[in-house]
Design a protein around this nucleic acid. Sequence first.
RNA 1: GGGCGUGUGGCCUAGUCUGGAUAAGGCGACAGCUUCCUAAGCUGUAAAUCGAGGGUUCGAAUCCCUCUACGCCCGCCA
Length: 567
Amino acid sequence: MSYALLEFKNEIIDEILDIVEVPEEEIDIERPSEERGDYALPCYPFSPILKKDPEEIARELSEKIELENGSVERSGPYLNFNIDEDRLSKDTVITCLEKEEDFGSLHSKGEKVIVEHTSANPNGPLHVGRARNPIIGDTIARIYEKAGYEVERQYYINDIGKQMAILTWGVLNLDEEDLPDTERDKDDHDLVRYYQKASRLLEEDEELEDEIQEIIGAMEAGDEKIFTQLTENAETVMSGITESLERLEIPIDSYKRESSLIKESSVEDVIKELWELEDTKKEDGAIYYEDEDRKTFVTRENGTNLYPARDLAYHVWKSKRADRLINILGEDHKSHGRFLLDALEDLNVEPLPETVFHSFVTFEGEEMSTRKGSYVTLDEFMDTAHEHAEEEILKRRDDLSKTDIEDIAEKVGMGAVRYNIIKVQPEKPIDFVWEEALNFQGESAPFIQYSYTRAKSILEKWRKKEGEDLSKTEKLDLESFEEGEIRLLKKIAELPLILRKAADQNAPHHPARYAHGLAAEFNQFYRDYPVLHSKNQKLERIALVKSFKFAITSVLETLGIKKPKEM
RNA sequence: GGGCGUGUGGCCUAGUCUGGAUAAGGCGACAGCUUCCUAAGCUGUAAAUCGAGGGUUCGAAUCCCUCUACGCCCGCCA
C-alpha cells in the first residue's frame, strides 16, 4: 500500500506529459489553499514553451486529462485538482492500520548518513543556547530514518585544544575551596567551575598563556600524563552532557575523539596532503590554506596543529564511513564551514558535508556564554519545565498516583523543551523567554500530546467495552466519511509529503509545524464527530481515530517527543 | 570596512530555496462554547501598505540592486 497523495501527484504529472510537450521539471504542482483543491497547476510557465495563451493551455489540458484517482477543474489559467475523497479515505485508513506508527516512512534509500551534532567543547554543561544544536541534530537524524536512510548520530568530542587545556590547567592548579559551590551534583556542573575560574585568570594574567601552550605542546608531543589528564577531564564532562541529552531522548550512536585523530596521525597526513595544494602556503613556519584571500591557519609557528586541520582530518575519516554527511553547526562556524568545503573539495574528498547552521539563542535579550557563566543551563530548563508540567497536571487532575504524575510531567516537560526549540527554523534567532518556553497551549508539545491522549482514551474505552481490537477492515465502509472526517484524513495523508520535504530541505521545523496542524484537525473532529456514541459509523470512526493515533505517533517519534498515557 | 544571515498584525512565528489566484498559525485582547468520548480543547471578532526604496515579470513576502536595523564571522581560539 502506498500513499494516496503522492500517487495522485505522480498520476497528474504523467497525464500532463502525455498531452503536452513540456520538460518534466517545468511541471510545478503546488499545494494551494484548501478551498481550491488538493493540487494546483498554474499554466503560465507553459506559455512561452508552447507559444500559446496560458488560459488556452489550461483549457486544453482540463479537457484532455483523464484521472483515475481524482478530477480536474479549470479556473482561468489555473488547473485545480481534487483527489477522489472516497479513495483517499480508504487508502489512508488502510495504509495507517497496516503500517501503524511507521506511517509516513518512505522507501529505503539503501544509503547511510552520519549526522554529527552537538560536538560542544566538553568544558561545562550545555546551556539552552547550545541545546539548540542537539535538538536540531537529533530531529534531523529521526527525519532521515523516516525518509529511509540508515542513520548514525555522531558526537565529535573536542577533547584537546585550547579550551580543554584551560580546563585542565584549572583542574591541576586550582583548589576546590576557592571555587563557588557547584549548582548541582553533576560532573559537568562540577568541572565547569574550574574552567570558568581559569578563563578569568587567563584574561588577567598573560603569563598563564604560556603555561596553557605548554600543556598543548606536551599533549601533542605525546606526553602520556598530560594526554590522560586532558582526555579524562573531557570524559568526565561528557558523562554529564550525555546524561542531559538522554533525558531529552537524544541518543548518540558513536563518538569520535579529536585526540584519536592525533594518535592515528591522520592530522599529520591531511596536513601533508594539503601542503601539496597550490593554495597552501607558509608564513613564519605556520601553514595556512588560502581561499578568496582569506587565510585559514592549520598549524602554529611552533608546529602544533589547529582546529581546522583536525576538523579536516575528521571529515576525511567520516567521508569513508557514509554516503552522506550532515553537520549541525552554530552560525559562528559559517566561515569555517566554507573553508572546510573548499579544502575538502580540493582534496577530492567525497561525500562533502552538508551543513545546517543555526542562529544563537539569547536569554531575555542577553548572550549566553559558558566561559562567562551567563546562561540558563539545559538541566535547569528541563527541571523547570518538569515542575511546570507537574503544576499543570495538579490543576486538572486529582485522581493520579504520584508515579503517574511524575511520569506524565517528565514526558510533557521534555516534549515542551524540544518543541519550543525545534518549531523555529534553524537560521532564525531565538530569544529564550521563560514565559513563552513554558506556555503549554497552542503551538506547543503538550497541545499535540493532549490530542494524542484524547485518541488513546477513546480507543481504550472502546476496547474495554468490546473486548477486542479492530480486526477486519474489509467489513468497514471506508468510503462514506463526512466532510470533517475527510479533512482529518487529508491531513493524515500529508505526513509522507512533509517528511520528504523535511529531509530534502534539512528543515526539522516542518514536521513540528505539521504536528500542530494535525493535532488541531483532530481536535475539531473530536468536537464534531462522536465516536463511541455514534450510531452507524462507530467502527469506521474507531478506524479513523486509530489512524490518527498512528500518524501522530509517527510525527512525535520524528520529533523525539514522548507520549504520555494520559494528561 | 568586508563577508554571511535575519527583519512578516501589539508579541512570537510559517510561507522565501522552486515567483502564481483573497499572506497562514500561535500568544495576548475581546465575545462566546462543558446535561454528550479529558476545556492543556473548540468557535467567532479586531488586528499586516510582508524593514524602506527602486528594478525584472502577465504576476513579487518570494528573484535582482541600493539603503537601513539587528545578529554572527573577519584569531598561529574552537
